[in-house]
Computed example of a mutant assay.
Amino acid sequence: MSLLTLNNVEVAYDRVFLAVKGVSIEVPERGLVALLGANGAGKSTVLKSISGLLKPERGEVSRGEVTFAGQDILALDPPDRVRLGIAHVLEGRRVFGHLTPQENLLAASTMHRDRGHVSALVDRMFETFPRLAQRAKAKAGYLSGGEQQMLAIARALMTEPKLLMLDEPSLGLAPFLVDEIFDIVRGINETSGVAVLLVEQNAIAALEIAHSGYLIENGRILMSGTAEVLGSNPDVAEAYLGGHQRVDYHAVKHYRRRKRWLA
């Protein structure tokens, strides 16, 4: 059963620039879905159309439907979407640098009225992310990039979401940290049943944990399928998985210039 469905969604900025062009995707309950694509392909815009964060950037869903748990959510404000069970971890982590990890977690707990429940959630986050427990008294601004990413995910989980959306969680991190964070995300999906929509340029890491995926380019879905099907596709492998064939760099440069002109 689908938890989240986007049907032929278009997103326009300033009612002029069409950034997303007829995107349709589904995230099943307890599913882990990757949305892959190059920088500027429209991945983050898709996530913002779901969480309701387009308006501050003068964007809007100009066409299509977004339903969550069978409910049309396009008319809902972002806080109402959070209360429904949607959590969005933005690109760049964006933790509160002047607060400790615990204070960051408490800042996301205002929707819960039971203090005992909030305390139990904080304890659960420190169990899930032991590095945060070790740095509990440090200001979040002094945490490493990987620790800040863990804190951003933990803060989102404080809302007890049904769907966790992650925007480029591997950005700027060392490979061993990427592996650690992705293992944690897979564990959250498997043990808690939280569905995950993972936006990534690191297709290798994403497809290792995802059940299925979509490939987006220039605002359009070009391909979809199981993680195994996408990973074995030669075009995907060459463009996103570091294919081993000899690359004609002159042709690559020409292709990139042509893409810029066509865009």
Rank of each mutant, 00 (worst) to 15 (best):
M1S: 15
T5M: 12
N7F: 06
V11S: 07
Y13P: 10
D14M: 10
F17C: 11
A19E: 03
V20E: 11
I25A: 04
E26V: 13
E29L: 10
E29M: 07
L35K: 11
G37K: 03
A38M: 07
G42V: 06
S44Q: 11
T45R: 04
V46K: 03
S49K: 07
S49I: 01
G52W: 00
L53W: 13
L53R: 03
L54H: 08
K55Q: 14
P56F: 15
P56I: 10
E57C: 06
E65I: 02
E65H: 14
T67D: 01
T67W: 01
A69V: 01
I73E: 02
I73F: 11
L74K: 11
L74M: 10
P78F: 04
P78S: 04
V82F: 05
L84V: 09
A87F: 08
A87E: 07
H88A: 01
V89H: 01
V89N: 05
V89I: 01
G92L: 09
F96W: 00
G97A: 06
G97E: 11
P101V: 03
N104I: 00
L105R: 10
A107P: 06
A107K: 04
S109E: 05
T110F: 15
T110L: 14
D114E: 09
R115L: 10
V118Y: 08
V118P: 03
V118R: 15
A120V: 04
M125C: 11
F126K: 03
L132T: 03
K137M: 01
K137A: 07
K137Q: 10
Y142W: 14
L143I: 11
S144G: 15
Q149S: 14
L151P: 06
I153S: 05
A154H: 03
A154W: 04
R155L: 06
T159W: 05
P161R: 09
M165R: 05
L166F: 14
L173P: 04
L173S: 08
A174E: 08
A174T: 12
P175H: 07
P175Q: 06
L177K: 02
L177G: 00
V178E: 00
D179G: 01
D179T: 12
I181M: 00
F182A: 02
D183C: 06
D183N: 11
I184P: 07
R186P: 11
I188D: 09
E190A: 15
V196D: 02
L198A: 04
E200A: 10
A203E: 04
I204H: 14
A205E: 12
H211K: 12
S212Q: 13
G213S: 14
G213Y: 02
Y214K: 01
L215W: 01
L215G: 12
I216R: 02
I221N: 02
I221Q: 01
L222V: 10
A227W: 09
G231Q: 06
S232I: 00
S232V: 00
D235I: 10
D235C: 00
E238Q: 15
A239Q: 13
A239E: 08
Y240N: 08
Y240E: 07
G243D: 10
Q245A: 13
Q245I: 09
Y249G: 00
Y249M: 09
K253S: 12
R257W: 08
R258G: 05
R258D: 12
R260M: 09
A263N: 15
A263Y: 05
